[in-house]
Design a protein around this nucleic acid. Sequence first.
DNA 1: AGAAGCATGTAATGAGTTACATGATTTG
DNA 2: CAAATCATGTAACTCATTACATGCTTCT
Lengths: 197, 197
Amino acid sequence: MSLRYALLGLLADEAGSGYELTKKFEQSLDRYAWHAKHNQVYQELNRLAADGLAEVVEEGARGRKTYAITEAGREDLRQWLLNPPRTPVVRNEFVLRLFLLFALDPKEARGVLAEYAASVQRDLDALTALVESGDVDLKDGMLHDPLAFGHLAAGFGLHMLPASRDWAQWAIAQIDERTDAGEGPESGAGAGGQGDE
Amino acid sequence: MSLRYALLGLLADEAGSGYELTKKFEQSLDRYAWHAKHNQVYQELNRLAADGLAEVVEEGARGRKTYAITEAGREDLRQWLLNPPRTPVVRNEFVLRLFLLFALDPKEARGVLAEYAASVQRDLDALTALVESGDVDLKDGMLHDPLAFGHLAAGFGLHMLPASRDWAQWAIAQIDERTDAGEGPESGAGAGGQGDE
DNA sequence: AGAAGCATGTAATGAGTTACATGATTTG
DNA sequence: CAAATCATGTAACTCATTACATGCTTCT
C-alpha cells in the first residue's frame, strides 16, 4: 500500500501526470523513502482513479492525463499518516551490504567502507550546494510552507548523510585499530592501510 | 536478489536453520537493512541449496535442517559485496511517512513528528542500555572480529538514531517558527502548540 | 494430557521488475 | 526528416505477504 500513499502524497502537493510523478519520485522519494518505476506508477494511478481517490482533471497531447487528488483521497492519506503501523517495512540494499561486510577480509571491507564514505560525502556536497543555490525550497518554500516537500527531504539528507559518513569512518577506525595496533601484526595486511586517510 | 545475499551473509557468520535465520533477521537486519518473513527464508534456503551456494549439514528433530554456506556461496557473496550496483533499492515506510507530512496541517504534523522523535529516542535508549550491558558484542566480539555482525549494526544505530531524532526536532522547530513567531498569527492554530515540549 | 512454543512448509494473492511496444512532439 | 525525448502502456516473470496447515517437543 505504500506506493499508493506515496502517489497520493505527491498529488496532495500538486496535480501531475504519470510521467511527472515518476520524475518527482526519482528526485525526491527514491533516494531515502520509496522506490518505484514508471509502469508501476501508471498502474497505480489507474487504480487510484478507479477507487475515487484521484481523478483525471486534464487530458493533453499524446494521451497525457493529469491526475489530481480527490477529497476522499486526501482523507485516506490523512488517516494513513495519522495511523502508523507497528512495524514499518524497511529495505535498504546499501545498509544490507554494509552490515554484511564482516564476510570480507578486513582489507577489502575497509576499501568498501572508504568508497561508501566518499560517495556519501559527494552526495552531501551536492546537496549542500543545491540548498545554498536556493534551488531547493529550504529558504523559499518554507516561507509559504514549512513542511514543503523538498524542504523536508533536504533537511533529512543534511542530517542523515553526515551520520552515515561518520559511521563508515568509525567502522574503518575499528578495522585499523585491530589490524594495525591492537593485537600486533599477524598477517600481510598490516602495512599500507594507515597513511591513507 | 538481496534476500539471497542477506541469507548468505548470515550463513557466512555461522550455520543455522531456517528458524534460527528468521530470528537473526528479526534481531539484526530487519530494523535497518532488510525485511523478510519466515516462509520466504525457507524458500530461499531451498533455492540456495539447489544452486550449490549452501548445503544441509545436519538434520535434527522435527525436520530441522541446519544450513552452511559453501565455498561457491562464499565467493558469490564476496563478488556481490565488492560490486555494488549504481542504484541500490531503498524502501522505508517510516521515512516515506515523514516526507509526506506536508499533507497534514501543521498541528497534526507536529504531533506525528514529536511521536516519532520520542520513539527514536526510546530505541536509542534501549540500544545504549544493550551496548552497555555487554550483551551485544561491541566490546567482546570486536576482540576477535572488528566487523562482527552485532557490532556493525549497533554502531550504525548509535550513529543514525540520534541523527533522525535531531531531524525530527529540527522539523518541529521549523513548524513552530512558522506557526508561532514567523509571520504572526494568521489562523486558529497559533495557540496551544507552544508549551507542549 | 494440554498448552506453549519450536520448526517447517504450501497456496493464493499482491507488489515490483524486466522487457517489449507504440506513437506523439520537439529540436536540429 | 531524423533523432531525441515525451508519454503511456502490456505481458511475463520474480519477489514478497497473508493465510493456512502440520506435527514435534518441552513444560506444567
